[in-house]
Amino acid sequence: MTTMEIAKKLVELCKQGKNAEALDTLFADEVVSVEAVAMPGAQQEVKGLAAVRAKGEWWVNNHEVHSASVTGPWPHGDRFIVGFEFDVTNKPSGKRMQMAEAALYTVRNGKIIREEFFYDAGM
């Protein structure tokens, strides 16, 4: 698959709530995921598909998602950006918040090898 084909497929799967399928089909086993800041008790950067999957599971277990939207993709060579907006409630604190982030993905050999998230960490 080309970078743009991967980008479009990722957006399509995310819009359908099929994040696990996206990980299984579009991401390399050695993928690196980097957050804008380290969350409490977590690392800013994780390596490997299992670690990225665990990070996603933590998110789902700790947030009630009221709504989500996905925009893009916006390509640039072997990279692309996708925009995400969420209305969520943090389950442990009960705090409801609106979040917006951009994710930069890098593709090599037909798989996503790196994802980097950009957001206002002061939210």
Results as ranks from 00 to 15, higher is better:
38 A>Q: 02
38 A>W: 01
38 A>L: 01
38 A>T: 07
39 M>Y: 11
39 M>N: 05
39 M>E: 13
39 M>Q: 09
40 P>Q: 08
40 P>M: 11
40 P>I: 13
40 P>N: 05
40 P>V: 04
40 P>A: 10
40 P>S: 12
41 G>L: 05
41 G>F: 02
41 G>A: 03
41 G>C: 01
41 G>S: 03
41 G>P: 03
42 A>W: 14
42 A>Y: 11
42 A>F: 13
42 A>T: 15
43 Q>P: 05
43 Q>A: 06
43 Q>I: 01
44 Q>E: 03
44 Q>M: 12
44 Q>A: 02
44 Q>C: 02
44 Q>H: 07
45 E>L: 13
45 E>V: 14
45 E>T: 15
45 E>I: 12
45 E>S: 14
45 E>P: 06
46 V>T: 15
46 V>K: 10
46 V>L: 10
46 V>C: 13
46 V>D: 05
46 V>G: 10
47 K>A: 11
47 K>H: 07
47 K>W: 00
47 K>P: 11
47 K>Y: 08
48 G>A: 07
48 G>N: 09
48 G>M: 04
48 G>W: 06
48 G>T: 08
49 L>Q: 11
49 L>S: 10
49 L>C: 10
49 L>P: 06
50 A>W: 04
50 A>E: 14
50 A>T: 09
50 A>V: 13
50 A>L: 07
50 A>I: 07
50 A>G: 04
51 A>M: 13
51 A>E: 10
51 A>G: 03
51 A>N: 08
52 V>M: 14
52 V>Q: 08
52 V>K: 12
52 V>H: 07
52 V>T: 12
52 V>N: 03
52 V>F: 14
53 R>V: 04
53 R>F: 06
53 R>D: 05
53 R>A: 07
53 R>L: 06
53 R>P: 03
53 R>T: 01
54 A>N: 02
54 A>E: 07
54 A>R: 04
54 A>W: 03
54 A>T: 02
54 A>D: 10
54 A>S: 06
54 A>K: 09
54 A>Y: 05
55 K>P: 04
55 K>M: 08
55 K>A: 11
55 K>H: 10
55 K>N: 09
55 K>I: 01
55 K>Y: 04
56 G>M: 00
56 G>K: 01
56 G>T: 01
56 G>Q: 00
56 G>F: 01
56 G>W: 06
57 E>K: 13
57 E>I: 11
57 E>S: 02
57 E>D: 11
57 E>M: 11
58 W>F: 07
58 W>A: 11
58 W>T: 12
58 W>E: 06
58 W>P: 02
58 W>R: 15
58 W>L: 06
59 W>I: 13
59 W>A: 14
59 W>S: 14
60 V>E: 12
60 V>M: 06
60 V>L: 08
60 V>A: 08
60 V>G: 07
61 N>D: 09
61 N>H: 03
61 N>K: 12
61 N>A: 10
61 N>E: 09
61 N>Q: 15
61 N>V: 00
61 N>T: 05
61 N>P: 05
62 N>D: 08
62 N>H: 11
62 N>E: 04
63 H>T: 09
63 H>S: 05
63 H>P: 00
63 H>G: 02
64 E>N: 12
64 E>L: 15
65 V>E: 02
65 V>A: 01
65 V>K: 06
65 V>N: 00
65 V>T: 07
66 H>W: 03
66 H>P: 01
67 S>H: 04
67 S>E: 08
67 S>F: 02
67 S>C: 00
68 A>R: 15
68 A>M: 15
68 A>V: 13
68 A>C: 13
68 A>W: 13
